[in-house]
Design a protein around this nucleic acid. Structure first.
Lengths: 219, 219
DNA sequence: GTGAACACGTGAAAC
DNA sequence: TGTTTCACGTGTTCA
């Protein structure tokens, strides 16, 4: 009966549990058996039982290595993750999942922030071609972002604010950078009507191209 | 011998392995045994063997639940993480560790970016107290970031640019926001000497507090 | 026929 | 007390 065979192996195995190599295992068997195989091969196991035992030992050792590998990774997870209260495997995994999700959300949020980050816009185009672009902010309804780059000159800002005044728009925020004679501005404009966008755009285009001249400055 | 007892239990257990409740297990025993306990209690197990078997069953089932719980979390990890090639437990854990580290690094990097992000600075303090702060940029050597918030007024920007002119500094970038009569500006200033920072600071303080008056604007 | 990976049941320890 | 968690050795399957 197969089951009995397993039991015998199991008992042998238990008896030799703490032996750590093939010689020790062999030492656990009857002397008569050993002497039968002694002359043909000194250390190599011969009998089917021996082979099975060695295989079992190898198997359990491999399994132990696998367990240790996995447990080591649990340990590093425990060290990496903050706010670990319970440190059993299931909790570690649960906390890991939670943290990964949070981190992912955080990253996507931060990446979106930095992509909609005005400073990046300003830095983005240091080229010499004139540009004018108006777009509705997707974050804030009613706010229009005007991006313009042109030659920097005396009174440019006055011209621009004049254009804004004409359409009764209010600048709630502005970023201006002037590099190498080129100016780039990003204006967040509030209070434009539905048709105000087109009007502002044309007025801004004029302001950008207005020839330089001395002006009375009234902010 | 304790070992034999376990074996018997083990065989019983194996025989009843696929039964799913106490009644089925009881059905696996001799009829004589059942009739002995039949009158006193209909369904509750009586003998020590039965109790042990039930305990073993409960134990193995609990262990199975635990395994399933953990494996479910492995599965969610496999779904959450991108770029999973090998999906065995060790690889999943390894990949998880890697991803967590990467995400952490990414987050700290992005958070640093956004903390040195001028827009955030501008938005950060909408309060009514005057402030003036100069600090060296840790990204760009030689660039000083001047952050100032004060009452908005006619000619404020002229005063500030006048102060900058006096120390022969150049503004490479500026962010200005005016809300509710308060102005907040962040200026990135280049070309300051070692002692220029202090000088600029005092000049800026004067410019901020200068009483409003009409001025000739020369940008 | 090896090695790797997994699920399983079980003894032991923690609480 | 019983419940929970872990390590272990084993059987099995897959490449």
């Amino acid at each position: 009966m197969a089951f009995i065979r397993q039991l015998v192996q199991g008992m042998q195995h238990v008896r030799n549990y703490y032996n750590s190599d093939a010689q020790m295992i062999r030492g656990g068997f009857h002397q008569t058996f050993i002497s039968r195989t002694y002359k043909t091969s000194f250390l190599k196991p011969r009998s089917k039982v021996e082979i099975k035992l060695l295989a079992a030992k190898k198997h359990s050792e491999a399994e132990k290595r696998r367990r240790m590998r996995i447990n080591g990774q649990y340990e590093t997870l425990r060290n990496i993750l903050p706010n670990i209260i319970k440190k059993d495997k299931a909790s570690v995994l649960a906390e890991t999942i939670k943290q990964v999700k949070e981190l992912k959300k955080k990253v996507s949020k931060l990446e979106q922030d930095s992509s909609s980050n005005p400073s990046k816009d300003v830095v983005k185009f240091p080229n010499g071609t004139d540009k004018l672009n108006l777009e509705r902010c997707n974050n804030d309804e009613g706010i229009v972002k005007a991006t313009l780059s042109c030659e920097d000159r005396l009174g440019l800002m006055s011209s621009i604010s004049g254009a804004l005044e004409q359409v009764k728009a209010k600048v709630v925020k502005a970023e201006i950078v002037s590099v190498g004679g080129r100016a780039r501005s990003v204006l967040w404009v509030q209070g434009l009507g539905n048709d105000g966008t087109g009007t502002l755009k044309s007025k801004l285009r004029v302001a950008m191209q207005k020839p330089p001249k001395m002006q009375r400055f009234t902010q």
